[in-house]
């Protein structure tokens, strides 16, 4: 009897170009959104996702056949893909959205990812060419919606392991053991592949992109697609009414003694 071919993993890592978290966010004068003419970088949770994919390959060696990064965004999002490639992804897909168009919503993103996965898996002649693991950030720090991973798993009918702080994959058994961050601790779940994992902060600490890898990344292939190629409609379903800054924090004051404190509290309406 011939042994069944050992399973091989193909990992897809969706990444998003977001306003860098070190940048101070300012609302635009029209109050329709934020000033985006600032420094952008890869969404930190997605950076953790890329790192996890690379670490899985370092651990599972040849069992990980490919790591592909994908982004859906304006022309400048290519920089974000290059970072992912410099960190260790093998190839990338850029679904380009015009600069002027509003950022696509999570459902549209999930549909795009589904279309990409189905396209590749339909074209695969051997089972080991199929994408069977998606690792992505649990949320993007710009809109904080945090639903893309769950939507994708739902659309594909795959297992999902959200808010992961530890991922162990048993390729032979076709299983993953994932620790999830939940209120008050961790929850260990076992899931079957194919699987969507969303990353939490404690999963790992992403590496810097080293110079030789940055140079190599420039030569790695990036496939360019348009939403139309994938048959996905990016018309927004949500309407933003108004964006405003949080109220300015008023500084505290010092009181000389308890009596003064009590008086102030009464003044502020405390009984």
């Amino acid at each position: 009897m011939r042994p069944s071919p050992s399973r091989l993993l193909n990992i897809l890592v969706p990444v998003k170009r977001a306003v860098d978290y070190a940048v101070k966010i300012r609302v635009n004068p029209q109050q329709t959104g934020i000033d985006t003419n600032v420094k952008h970088s890869m969404n930190p949770f997605d950076e953790i996702a890329v790192e996890e994919a690379v670490r899985l390959r370092e651990k599972l060696k040849a069992s990980v056949t490919s790591i592909k990064a994908i982004t859906i965004g304006p022309p400048k999002a290519l920089d974000t893909l290059r970072t992912a490639l410099a960190m260790g992804a093998d190839s990338a897909i850029h679904v380009e959205v015009p600069e002027t168009q509003p950022a696509p919503e999570p459902l549209a993103i999930a549909r795009t990812l589904k279309a990409v996965i189905e396209k590749q898996n339909a074209a695969a002649t051997k089972p080991e060419d199929k994408i069977d693991l998606v690792i992505l950030g649990k949320q993007a720090i710009d809109d904080d919606l945090g639903v893309t991973g769950q939507m994708l798993a739902g659309l594909l009918g795959w297992s999902q392991a959200t808010f992961a702080s530890k991922v162990d994959i048993d390729v032979a058994k076709n299983e993953a053991l994932v620790t999830r961050e939940i209120d008050g601790g961790g929850e260990e779940i076992k899931c079957r592949l194919p699987l969507v994992v969303t990353t939490d902060l404690r999963l790992n600490e992403p590496r810097y992109a080293s110079l030789p890898n940055i140079m190599k990344a420039k030569k790695k292939p990036v496939e360019k697609l348009s939403p139309a190629d994938l048959g996905v409609d990016y018309t927004p379903q949500l309407e933003t009414l108004k964006v405003s800054e949080p109220p300015v924090r008023v500084g505290g004051g010092k009181v000389a003694n308890v009596d003064e404190l009590l008086a102030k509290l009464k003044e502020a309406g405390f009984p």
Binding site: D20, S41, A86, Y208, L211
Partner: peptide
């Protein structure tokens, strides 16, 4: 500059890292 440094016959540097974001810059 970095390409020049990495491709030199007798490189002055082993390797290095380039910040990819303001957070890495910091």
């Amino acid at each position: 500059l970095l390409e020049l440094l990495l491709s030199a016959d007798k490189p002055l540097i082993n390797t290095g890292v380039l910040s990819q974001s303001p957070a890495q810059f910091i």
